[in-house]
């Protein structure tokens, strides 16, 4: 999908807090400690404030798995009110 991640994310950037939604999405997927480690590995807070930088870094670290993460983040941006409950 996510050649269009940046444009998909940028549309919502003015209304939503991109950074907090990315943090929340990574926490959903990986759990708190690993999400913090992922954020550190992709370059810290700076990398989760800019959709195109976030996409680039996530692709570098996760390779084929990046599309799944980006798609999940994009869905969460598009519909942040949906609470996703961790199992």
């Amino acid at each position: 999908m996510s050649a269009e991640f940046s444009s998909r994310a940028t549309v919502y950037l003015h209304n939503k807090d991109f950074e907090s939604i990315v943090r929340s999405a990574l926490k959903d997927i990986f759990g708190e400690p690993l999400a913090s480690s992922v954020i550190f590995q992709i370059g810290g807070t700076e990398s989760i404030m800019d959709p195109s930088l976030f996409e680039k870094k996530i692709r570098l670290v996760f390779g084929p798995g990046a599309d799944l993460i980006l798609d999940y983040v994009a869905k969460k941006l598009e519909n942040p009110r949906k609470r996703i409950v961790r199992k």
Binding site: I29, F62, P64, L68, Y72, R83, I84, V85, K87
Partner: peptide
């Protein structure tokens, strides 16, 4: 390792979206 990580992410997101 990358295949395992991708598989983990895929499973995790399916679980999250399923529960949602």
């Amino acid at each position: 390792t990358q295949e395992k990580i991708t598989s983990f992410i895929e499973t995790r997101i399916k679980m999250l979206e399923g529960s949602e």
